[in-house]
Write a protein that binds this DNA or RNA. Structure first.
Lengths: 254, 254
DNA sequence: CGAGACTTTGACCGTAGTCAATTTATGTGG
DNA sequence: CCACATAAATTGACTACGGTCAAAGTCTCG
């Protein structure tokens, strides 16, 4: 299964729409031009797979949303992360049965990361990619905490707060509002909840005036309060508190 | 906060106990000798923090169990992963409030990864470290699926199966049995469940003859059946099954 | 206008959490 | 080697968060 979509040059006009990307990774305009030339376009809903030849592959998202997903044999689905412009991901050549897969949630443009790390500015970009990878891992931890220890309300808020910050960083937030091309089902699969419960949770959050949702758009009110309520900490901290060391014992009786 | 424990040379005699480590990362004996010299010993229950000076740091576990943990401001705790001999982890200099922390679950010996990647064999070891890092990420995904989409019984089995495979790979499994220095509370924090429920789940699994637990030891019966029951796949596959593309819609009404 | 995808609602269920008490290790000092 | 202290494992009673099922309502788009 090879990558869906076609390769093409993105018209210059559109560049303005992604202006934020420049700031995000400190890539200079010249570099971004090169960027455009190696961009691949992928239609919404398509799978992003590695070329049959290349074993491994790293991509950078230029525009659009991607989800990293795994589907269990019985149909249950889990979304690990959402990839936004500027994010990096590796594709395992093996996109076969059950692996982690990348799915375009919108029309997407991706660039080959390896193609960006060569040349004069390569090192600089390489560094920002390294940083992107680090952030990516950090987000996986956040995701684990969300589904492992937070309640439904907290999960929803926590994820929305993360998306807010990430989108804000690339200039896609205006007046506490951002576009979010996610289905409630997708949201549910990311947060380990059922669609029905996501729906009810969103309603509750709306009723409580914590957020406004509508037409693919989300507005967060009083982000500070929300953050502390949902145990959210914008890309750095977290609260430690070493619990007193316990005896390291056996799992059980017998 | 600097790394707890003291640095010392590990007596040669003990090396035999970790024979499996050689096979695991294909490190030749000579290299392992160097290994020992840079080993740091950490007592059970202690925190493993970066030296105040070194910004980032990568370590390799030589012996013992470590947990990667985060504690939320309200005390809830989530364990991201368990580190076993041969595993790699990076320590953020900032071991302050709320970050991800490494906690020794047993007496532990760790080596500095960077110290291992220099010299003649450095490249070879470096490669195996890279591989270890890849596996590590893969396991984070497994962890997300576990707590996001599996039931309590499945979670417990799935994790035990993973530990089985990892311990087996380093020669620490005998007759389907392995030692597991985990408290039910630790187990609970890793699987996003309550201690009480972990306890009851273990009992149920015992009653159903799927496993035997006792005195810090676990025996898995009919691993194959357990694996399919718990959606476990030993470090490779997974079942894909692209759900039909849905319309990418808005999150809601209004 | 219809079809299909998505959202919403209601009724009901069940897995897992909470609280609190009890029992069972495990260890330590005398 | 025993008594006591403490961590860990267990149990029971009760709760509640979130899941399931099924039907209806909305929105989009061809």
């Amino acid at each position: 299964m090879s990558m869906s979509g076609n390769v093409g040059v993105i018209p210059r006009e559109r560049q303005s729409a992604f202006a934020g990307l420049n700031d995000f990774r400190q890539m200079d305009v010249g570099r971004v031009r090169t960027f455009w030339r190696t961009v691949e376009r992928i239609p919404a809903g398509a799978n992003i797979a590695a070329e049959p030849d290349s074993r491994k592959r790293q991509i950078v998202v230029v525009s659009g949303w991607i989800s990293e997903t795994r589907i269990l044999p019985d149909g249950r689905r889990q979304i690990f992360a959402f990839l936004l412009p500027g994010d990096v991901a590796s594709i395992n050549a093996s996109s076969h049965v059950g692996s982690r897969g990348l799915v375009a949630l919108t029309n997407v443009e991706v660039a080959d990361a390896s193609a960006l790390t060569v040349g004069e500015q390569g090192e600089r970009i390489s560094a920002s990619l390294t940083d992107a990878i680090r952030q990516r891992e950090e987000r996986l931890f956040d995701q684990i905490v969300r589904i492992g220890r937070l309640t439904a309300k907290e999960r929803v808020l926590n994820l929305l707060l993360e998306l807010y910050d990430r989108l804000d960083a690339i200039g896609l937030v205006k007046e506490n509002t951002f576009r979010i091309p996610l289905t409630q089902e997708v949201f549910a699969d990311a947060l380990g909840l059922s669609v029905v419960h996501i729906n009810r949770t969103l309603q509750q959050l709306r009723r409580e005036g914590m957020l406004t949702v509508g037409r693919g758009t989300v507005t967060l009110h009083q982000r500070h309060k929300l953050a502390s309520f949902a145990c959210y900490q914008s890309e750095t901290q977290q609260a430690e508190g070493d619990r007193q060391p316990r005896r390291i014992g056996a799992l059980s009786r017998d």
